[in-house]
Design a protein around this nucleic acid. Structure first.
Lengths: 336, 336
DNA sequence: CTCCGCTAAGTAAACGTTTTCGTAAAATTA
DNA sequence: TAATTTTACGAAAACGTTTACTTAGCGGAG
C-alpha cells in the first residue's frame, strides 16, 4: 500500500509536508505542492480512512437507522424512495452512508454504541417505531441526529405534511359531494395520530358528521385487514359513500372486498388511498391518493443532517415540512 | 471518551492486557479477565473502530455498490427486496454495510478507490450495468467481490434463474394452448440475453414458431414503451395470443394499450409479467408472472461474500442459482 | 548591521488499538 | 533441589495520519 511516507521519501520531504500539500494547507510552497500532488497521483495514493478518522475524529460517514416497516422492510416504496433521496443527496454532500444495526462483530451492540464505534458524523433515523427505547436513546444522544416523521425536542426533523394531506383528501372528497366518509387508519404512531386529528378537524370544519364506527383502527400495508374493515363498513345500516384507506396497498384489499360483494369502485362506493406509489396510477380505475414526496424528504433530511454536523454547537434545528400532492384519480365518484 | 488505557489504569494493569482480556486472548488470568470486563462495562467502554481498523486491516464493513436501475433507483421492488435480504444476512454475520459511491469528501473517487479508502472487507455489486468500466474495475480488483445476476471469472455470484424462469413461463403458456407467443424484452443486459436465449430455445423445443416481429427489444419498467410495443404486436396481421412482458410494471402499459383498443385481458389476449412484485397479486385479473426470490438472492450474496472474506486465499468461488416460482394468475386464458 | 517578520519546511507527539516478544513467578518434572 | 515448562502479564512498536510547535533561511525596515 502506498502511504504518505512513501510519497515523502520520493519527493525528498517529510510526511508532514505531504499531508499538508494534499490537504491544501497554506504553508507549503507552490512547486512542492505540484511535485507532491503529481507523485501521489502517479503512485496511486489513496488515503487511509481509518487513520484519518482516528486522528481527526471525522469520518464523513453518516449512520442510517432504517427500521423495518412491519413486514415489508425496505420494500415499501415510500421508504425506498426516501432512502434513495437521502443517499443521493448525502453523497453529493460528500458523505458515505452506512446502516446502523444492533449486531456487529458478533457482540450485541445498541444503536448508539454502534454509532459510536463507527464514529458516524451524524445519524438519520427513518422508522415508524419511535417508541422503541433503543431508538430514543440514539435520537437523544449527543450525536447529531435528524429524524423523519417524528420530532425530538432540539433536533432537526423532516415531516411529511400528513395534516394537510388528510385535510386535502377530505376536502376533495367533500367537494365531490360525499357526506358519509369513513376512515380506516393504520397502527398508532405519530403519523397516524396526526392524520386522525386532521380527519376529525376537517370533517368538523365542513360540517360532515362522523358516525360511530366510521373510523376504524387498522394496520398499514395489510390488504387483508383492509378487506375485513371494508366489509364491516359496508355492512353498516348506513354505509359510507367513500372510504379513506391508510395507504395504497390497503386500498387493494378494500377493492377486493367491494367486488366480492358485487360492488364496484367508484360506481357503488368511492375510495382513496395514501402515498401515491407508482402502481396506483396504473390501476384502472386509477387511484385517488395523496402522493408523499418521499425523495425530497430524504434529500432534505440529508441536508439538515449535514448542517447539524458541520455547524456543530451553532446548529439550530429546523422542522422541515414537505407537502404532498393530491393525485385525483378515478376512484371517487361525483355525487350530485 | 473511555479508552483501553483508562481501563488499564483503573484495573492496575497494562493496556495490552486489557486488549487481550476484551478479545478473549488465552494468556490472561481468570480473575483479571473478570475484573477488566466488568470495569469496561461499568465505564461504558466502546472500542474505537477506526483504531481497530488501522491496526488490524479488518473493518467488518462491507461495501455495497447499488447502482440505479434506470430511473427507478432503489424504488424497484426487486432491488429493494434484495437489498433487504443482503442487509439482514450481512448483519447477522456481523458485518456493517455501507454504500459505495463515486464522490466522497468532495474528491471524485472511483468505486475501487472508494472501497480502498474505506477498507471494506468485501464488496457486493448489485446492478444491471456490468459494462460500466468503473464497475468492472471494482469487480476485477483484488477486493473480495460478489456480484448479482452477472458472473465474473473467478468470483462468486448469485444468479436468478432467468433461464428456467422464462422456460417455465413459455411452457406454461404453451400448456394453456397458446401457439402464438410474443416476447417484449428489456434492454441488452446479461439477464436479458439469458432470457432471450431461453425463449428461443423453449419455443424451439415445443415446436412453437417465432414469427418475425414477435420479439421486440424494449426497456425495463417502462409502461409507456410496453404500450407502444403492444400496439405494434396487436396491429400485426397475425397478432400473438399471448404476450410476455419484461416485468410486471411493463405489463401495466400493455394492459392499458389493450384496453384502449377495446380488448380485454385475458379474454382477447393473454399476458404474463416477470418479477412477481407484491402488487401483481392484487390486480384483477391477477397477474401470471415469475416471482424472483429476491430476498434469498440478497441473503445468499451476503453469505457468499462473507465466505470470500473469511476464507481469503482458500476461497473457491461459487455460482449460486436461485430459482423463481411461477405465479399462475388469471391473465393467461386457456385456449381449447 | 541588527532585528523583526515572513515563508517553507521539518520534528515529534498523538489518535486508540493490537501484537510480538520478553520475562518473572509459579508449577511441574526429574 | 535443580532444571524445565507453563502461566500471566508488560514493554514497546506499529498501523497511517494530522497538527502544534520549531526552525532555517531570507528579505526588508530601522
Amino acid at each position: 500500500m502506498v502511504t504518505i511516507k512513501a510519497i515523502a521519501a520520493r519527493c525528498g520531504c517529510s510526511p508532514a509536508t505531504v499531508s499538508k500539500a494534499l490537504n491544501g494547507a497554506p504553508d507549503v510552497g507552490r512547486d512542492m505542492v505540484k511535485k507532491i500532488r503529481s507523485a501521489a497521483a502517479e503512485m496511486g495514493y489513496i488515503p487511509n480512512g481509518a487513520a484519518r478518522a482516528l486522528k481527526t475524529a471525522r469520518t464523513y460517514n453518516l449512520g442510517l437507522l432504517f427500521q423495518e416497516f412491519s413486514h415489508s422492510g425496505l420494500a415499501h416504496e415510500f421508504f425506498s424512495l426516501m432512502l434513495n433521496g437521502f443517499k443521493s443527496r448525502a453523497e453529493e454532500l460528500g458523505y458515505d452512508i452506512s446502516f446502523i444495526s444492533s449486531h456487529l462483530e458478533g457482540r450485541g451492540f445498541s444503536y448508539v454504541e454502534h454509532a459510536r464505534y463507527r464514529k458516524f458524523d451524524g445519524v438519520a433515523v427513518i422508522t415508524v417505531n419511535y417508541d422503541d427505547p433503543a431508538v430514543r436513546e440514539l435520537a437523544e444522544s449527543d450525536i447529531p441526529t435528524v429524524t423523519v416523521d417524528y420530532e425530538f425536542p432540539g433536533r432537526g426533523c423532516v415531516m411529511s405534511d400528513n395534516d394537510q394531506g388528510v385535510a386535502d383528501l377530505v376536502q376533495y372528497v367533500h367537494s365531490m359531494g360525499h357526506r358519509r366518509i369513513a376512515f380506516i387508519h393504520g397502527e398508532q404512531t405519530a403519523v397516524t395520530r396526526t392524520r386522525l386529528a386532521a380527519f376529525f378537524r376537517t370533517c368538523g370544519q365542513l360540517g360532515v358528521p362522523v358516525p360511530k364506527g366510521y373510523v376504524i383502527e387498522g394496520v398499514y400495508h395489510d390488504p387483508d385487514f383492509a378487506a375485513v374493515a371494508t366489509e364491516r363498513l359496508l355492512n353498516m345500516p348506513e354505509p359510507p359513500t367513500c372510504i379513506l384507506y391508510p395507504d395504497d396497498i390497503s386500498y387493494m384489499g378494500g377493492l377486493e372486498a367491494a367486488e366480492r360483494r358485487g360492488l364496484s369502485i367508484p360506481e357503488d362506493v368511492s375510495a382513496v388511498g395514501y402515498d401515491g406509489i407508482a402502481m396506483s396510477q396504473f390501476l384502472r380505475p386509477s387511484l385517488t391518493t395523496m402522493r408523499q414526496n418521499a425523495p425530497l424528504m430524504g434529500a432534505r433530511a440529508a441536508e439538515e443532517l449535514s448542517r447539524a454536523v458541520t455547524e456543530g454547537r451553532a446548529y439550530s434545528p429546523e422542522r422541515i415540512v414537505i407537502p404532498g400532492v393530491l393525485l385525483a384519480g378515478e376512484t371517487v365518484k361525483r355525487l350530485k
